[in-house]
Computed example of a mutant assay.
Amino acid sequence: MKTRKLSEGLEVSDLGYGAMSLSHGYGEATDRKDAVKILRQALDCGYTYFDTAEVYGPYINEEIVGEALKPFRDEVVISTKFGISFSEYTHGDIIPDARPEKIRQSVEGSLKRLQTETIDLYFQHRIDPKVEPEVVAEVMGELIKEGKIRHWGVSVAPEEYIRRAHKVTPISAVQDRYSMMARGIEKLFPTLEEFGIGFVAYSPLANGLLSGAYEKATNNKFEAVVDYRSRMPQFTPEAMKKNEELMAFLQKTAEEHRATMSQLSLAWMLGKHSWLTAIPSSRRLERIVENAGGAVVKLSAEEIKAIDEALDKLPKSDIFGVKNN
C-alpha cells in the first residue's frame, strides 16, 4: 500500500485500520490474542496507520493496539482520542469532558496503554460545549511541546470550532463520518484544503452496509446492547428494501472496475482528495485484505463525478448518525 500526506509532517498509509470493532460496538470483544494477531495481519497487508480511542472498551482497545504494534512502533502511525465517556445509565449517551486536567489525565493513560512515548495523532473525540476550543488547542500545543503528542485533531466538530482552534494550535486532521450514504461533510472540504488540514473518514462503508455483506440482515440478528447494529436504521427490512437500487448500482459499477463493492466505495473516497484517508474496520482477514484493495482501484475524476451524480438521485435509507429522508 502506498502512503499519502494528510498534512504537514503527517504521512499515513492510503487506508488506515480502525481498531474499534475489536472490542467495542460490534458484538462481544475479540479474544485478546486473536485481536493482537488481527492487528499484525493488517500491518502485513500494508496498513501502517491504526486508529483507536481510550473509550473503546473502555481502555482495552488501546491496550491491544499497544501490545500488537510495540515491536513495530517505528513503522506505524497511531491515532487515539480523548474527551468522552459513555453513560452506564442512559444506554450509552456520550458525556463530553475536555477540561485541561482531564485531557492531561487521558493522555498519560493512553501513552501507558499504547506503550509509547509519543502519540502520533491525538483527536478530541467530541467537542465539549463547556470548554472553549481555544482552551483545548492551548493544551494540545503544550502537549506537542512536551513531546507527548506529534499532531492533534478534532472529531465531529463544526467549522467554527475548527477555525478557532486552528488559530491557536494548528490542527493536522479532522475525523468524521463519511461514506457514499453520508456525504454532508463534503461541505467542510474547502475549509480543510484552505488550512492544509487532512481528513480521516470513519464508517466509510456505512457500518459495513456498503460491503454488500448484509443484504438480508435485520437488526434482530445482532446482539442487543453490545452490537450497535441492532439499533442502526440501515439494517431494518424497510431500509434494505429502500436501498435496493443503490446496492444494484454499486454492484454493477464495481463489476465494471473488477472490484468488490467495498473496494469501489473506498476507491471513490480516496480519489476525492490526496489529503483524505479512511479507516475501515473488520475482524476478518479476508475483509481486511479486500478493503486494502480499495487503494489499488483507481477512478478518474470523471468517473467519480458520475458516481456522485448517481448517488444524488438514488434513494437511500437513513443510516446511523445520518438522516437521508
Rank of each mutant, 00 (worst) to 15 (best):
M181H: 03
L121M: 10
R150T: 03
V135T: 14
V156A: 14
M180G: 10
K187Q: 14
D120P: 05
V107C: 00
I171P: 02
K167G: 05
P100A: 00
I95N: 04
Y161V: 12
R150I: 04
L192C: 13
A173R: 01
V156W: 08
R177M: 05
Q115M: 14
G147E: 07
Q115T: 03
V154P: 06
M180Q: 10
T116C: 14
S155I: 09
R113Y: 01
D176K: 04
W152L: 05
F195A: 14
R113H: 03
T118Y: 03
G196C: 05
V107R: 00
R104S: 12
R183G: 07
R164L: 10
E193A: 15
I95M: 13
G109Q: 07
I144V: 15
I119N: 01
K112C: 04
D176H: 09
R177S: 02
E132N: 09
K130Q: 15
I119Q: 08
I185E: 08
K187C: 08
V200C: 07
P170R: 00
K148E: 04
V131P: 10
I149N: 00
H166N: 12
H125P: 10
E138P: 07
G184W: 07
L114Q: 12
P96T: 04
I95P: 07
T169C: 11
M180T: 14
E108L: 15
H166P: 05
W152G: 08
K167V: 00
G184Y: 09
R104C: 07
V107K: 02
V174D: 10
P170K: 02
M180E: 13
P170Q: 06
S179M: 05
T169V: 11
E186Q: 10
E194C: 08
T169W: 11
A137N: 00
G196D: 02
E159I: 13
P96M: 06
G147K: 08
M140R: 02
K167A: 13
I149M: 01
L143W: 04
I185A: 11
I162G: 05
E186F: 12
I162R: 02
I162M: 04
A137T: 00
G153E: 04
E193S: 13
R163E: 04
R99S: 11
G184R: 11
Y161Q: 10
E142I: 09
Q175K: 01
L121F: 09
V156T: 10
V200E: 06
I149Q: 01
L111P: 14
S106T: 02
I144R: 11
G153C: 03
E160P: 02
V168M: 06
A165C: 06
E193P: 06
T116K: 09
H151I: 07
T116I: 12
H151V: 12
G196F: 13
D97P: 11
I185R: 06
K167Y: 06
G147C: 04
S179V: 07
K130I: 10
T169D: 03
E134A: 09
A173M: 09
V136S: 02
K167L: 04
F189T: 07
P190T: 15
L188E: 14
M140N: 05
P190H: 15
